[in-house]
Design a protein around this nucleic acid. Structure first.
Lengths: 73, 73
DNA sequence: CCAAAAAACGAAGTGTAACTTCGTGGTTTT
DNA sequence: AAAACCACGAAGTTACACTTCGTTTTTTGG
C-alpha cells in the first residue's frame, strides 16, 4: 500500500477534477502556489494541518472524508 | 469549532486511553518523545504525515477513522 | 494539426514548525 | 507519601512545508 502522501495526493487530484478546477484555481482558493498544489497531488509534498483545513473548507468535506481512500490497505 | 490540531489531539488522547497506554508507551510505539505526544494531545503540535502513518498503524485504524471527530463542525 | 493552456519537473532558497532534550512542578493512583 | 503519570517552559536542531523562476512535457479543444 502506498504511503499517505501518495494516497492524499491522488485524492486531492480526484476531488479537484470532480470540482472542475485547475491547479491554478485551487492554488488561489488555498492561498498556496500552483507548484505546491502540483507537488501535493504527485505526493512530493504533504500539506500542513493548516493547509489541510483549507482544503477541507474549499471542498466542503469533513476531515474524515478527506482522509478516506479507496485503495488504502 | 476548534481547529484540526485540537481535534486531532483530543482524538489521539481518547484512543490512547481506550487502548490503555501511557504517553510514554505510545511514544515508544511511535518512535517520538513523550513530550511530543503530550504536545500533540494538547494541540500544541501537529504530527507530520510520517507520524500520522505510525499512529494509524499503532492503533490499527484507517486514516479516515483517525480523522473522524465527534465534535467537528 | 497546432496553439494555448495546463501540468510536470528541476533547482535553489526561506522560514516555520515538527521534534528533541532537560528540568521542574503539578496531579493522579496505589 | 511515594511512584507514576502528565503539564509546561525554554531553548535548540532539523526536516520539510512552501516559495520563486525557468524550462519542458502533456493535455485540451478549435
Amino acid at each position: 500500500m502506498p504511503n499517505l502522501r501518495i494516497l492524499f495526493g491522488k485524492k486531492l487530484r480526484k476531488i479537484r477534477r470532480y470540482k472542475d478546477l485547475t491547479q491554478e484555481q485551487l492554488a488561489e482558493l488555498l492561498g498556496v502556489s500552483v507548484e505546491f498544489v502540483s507537488n501535493m497531488e504527485r505526493g512530493v509534498n504533504a500539506p500542513s494541518f493548516e493547509t489541510i483545513e483549507k482544503i477541507a473548507q474549499a471542498f466542503d468535506l469533513s476531515f474524515g472524508e478527506l482522509f478516506t481512500f479507496e485503495d488504502e490497505k
